[in-house]
């Protein structure tokens, strides 16, 4: 009985607190940084969602926002920053370059930051509109509430809980998914 209460009620409360107190570490490497500033500035105001402070130390942050192109040379630094963050932690790939490498298909650019760190939410766009950033943040909050962030699942698995493979990379339904409709519905 106690375990179920912990898993349901307490965990839900903890995740609720987590999703509204994201401390972000902006790993800004390129022009998407301008759009990130716009999202963080008063007009679009990331702070409304509790992602108030950019912390410029990964040890104080739990949300890594990868903003811009990642080169192969930056890979080890990015991984090190991710490893330094306290768990549970989340990663957002901001813009197509961080998501897939974008239009850079060459010897120097990493084809997506997820080659090095697990990414929870991808934001397309070159650069993304601030509305997309806010949408991604809301998606991430929903995922945190469900306990489906990558590092949350890893923590759960490490604690001995049974984690189904399907839950490790769940399909992200998002706020726009139509109830009852599944993928492949024509």
């Amino acid at each position: 009985m106690g375990l179920e209460i912990y898993n349901s009620t307490v965990q839900a409360a903890v995740n609720w607190a987590r999703k509204f107190s994201l401390f972000q570490y902006p790993f800004v490497t390129a022009c998407c940084g301008m759009e990130f500033m716009s999202s963080a500035a008063p007009k679009y105001d990331l702070a409304r969602f509790g992602a108030e402070f950019p912390r410029f130390s990964p040890r104080q942050a739990d949300l890594l926002i990868i903003v811009g192109t990642i080169t192969e040379r930056q890979g080890p630094a990015l991984r090190r920053i991710y490893d330094q963050m306290c768990e549970p932690k989340w990663v957002v790939a901001f813009g197509v370059c961080a998501s897939t490498g974008g239009f850079y298909q060459n010897y120097s650019t990493m084809p997506g930051a997820d080659q090095v760190v697990p990414v929870d939410v991808y934001i397309p766009g070159c650069p993304p509109r601030p509305e997309q950033v806010l949408d991604a943040l809301i998606l991430l909050q929903e995922r945190i509430q469900r306990g489906e962030g990558h590092s949350q699942i890893v923590l759960k698995a490490e604690a001995g809980h049974d984690v189904p493979i399907a839950a490790i990379r769940p399909r992200d339904k998002g706020p726009h998914a139509v109830a009852g409709k599944t993928e492949g519905a024509k």
């Binding site: 192969e72 040379r73 890979g75 080890p76 991984r79 298909q105 060459n106 010897y107 990493m110 084809p111 997820d114 080659q115 090095v116 760190v117 697990p118 699942i153 890893v154 698995a157 984690v163 493979i165 490790i168 990379r169």
Partner: peptide, 18 residues
């Protein structure tokens, strides 16, 4: 130099589900 050639310094491994 081959256009598609990559020389990664680091890649993720042991990622569950992948």
């Amino acid at each position: 130099y081959p256009k598609e050639k990559r020389q990664p310094l680091i890649r993720r491994s042991g990622f569950p589900g992948k």
